[in-house]
Design a protein around this nucleic acid. Structure first.
Lengths: 191, 191
DNA sequence: GCCTGCATGTAAACGGTTACATGATTCG
DNA sequence: CGAATCATGTAACCGTTTACATGCAGGC
């Protein structure tokens, strides 16, 4: 039996890069900005990943360097083979991993600390999601105006809505959680 | 300036183990079960982490091996120093990292695949969260009955509610997303 | 006595971030 | 000219999962 052909093939970062390049040629720097700006709320990549990936994808013929420009950035463009590889990955069912949520770990054991600690942590969550909702609103604006005619905008709105709905649900959760804690610890906490 | 004292100190797995041991002595095997059963929906640890951590925590005096029993499991108990270390960690503000959500990455670029792919992925999400809601309901039952008198139950309910609310929000999102896709791709998709 | 499952443990591989190195360009 | 910033790139480190190794207990 010859060499058991690795079943793995996770490498999601490779496909994240390929996907980003379907929106037009990008340099490593451009990619970093794309990941921190456009899809930052559900995906991120660091330089330490991006540049090596660009090199290997290029070696595999899935992307290729743009003809030299006089700019400092050196952009890559996705090839037909790259599009095919991306498409094949997109078609695989998504892996639904359970993320680690540090704040829940701290709340689960919050009885070991003083009661005010739980309230503080809830406040952090509230602030975080209020900020996220602000950003989502800004992005929604752009989707409705300058990007409204783009063929893929339906999908982008969809991912944005995922973020919006979870943040709203978690703000409601903060309210309920604080109420429950006030109930349990007796009266509002003064600090 | 002498030797810049490492600011890091993440090591959340250590504190997850310490926290678990506040609920009573546990062996490595017990811990694994605790992580996959009780807090599995927001935290997990593998054997590869647990056993080395038990060794180092023990060496640091934060936990200690239980006096020998004739059982096969070798449980550890948290020490006072361990409780203090845990408390100190619990009091630090939680790190609100943005998790990577693979299914959103696939949906964001779903325009590169055929339209039916997005519907399939949404179905996976729906199934996942329906299952989670079932599990949450079971756990809620136990919290209201056999565990109802435990001092920390208020915190446990709180974390459970986090899961329940997000799953409900995401089921609603699935509905909305499918409606939007039917709209955009014209009529329901038959497959 | 042998097989299956329980329980502990370790090594290797992996994916990712962080920190650092380097040069080029722009601006005061 | 010097400083700050842009852009590419690499090396080290870290946390985590996976796979494997080992031994013991209980049941056929």
């Amino acid at each position: 039996m010859p060499d058991q052909p690795r079943v793995r093939e996770l490498n999601r970062s490779r496909y994240a890069v390929l996907g980003a390049l379907t929106l037009g040629p990008k340099s490593g720097y451009d990619l970093r900005q794309f990941f921190s700006r456009s899809v930052g709320f559900f995906w991120s990549e660091s330089f330490g990943q991006i540049y090596p990936i660009l090199r290997t994808l290029s070696a595999e013929g899935l992307i290729e360097a743009e003809p030299a420009t006089n700019e400092r950035r050196r952009p890559y463009r996705i090839t037909e083979a790259g599009r095919a590889a991306l498409k094949q990955w997109l078609e695989q069912p998504p892996v639904m991993e359970v993320g680690r949520i540090e704040v829940l770990l701290k709340l689960f054991f919050a009885g070991e600390a003083s009661p005010a600690v739980a309230f503080d942590h809830l406040q952090v969550v509230r602030n975080e999601h209020m900020q996220r909702l602000e950003r989502y609103a800004q992005v929604a604006d752009r989707l409705d105006t300058e990007l409204a005619d783009h063929a893929q905008v339906v999908y982008w709105r969809l991912t944005l809505d995922y973020g919006r709905r979870t943040s709203e649900a978690l703000l409601a959760w903060c309210d309920a959680a604080e109420a429950a804690l006030r109930e349990a610890t007796g009266g509002p906490v003064l600090r």
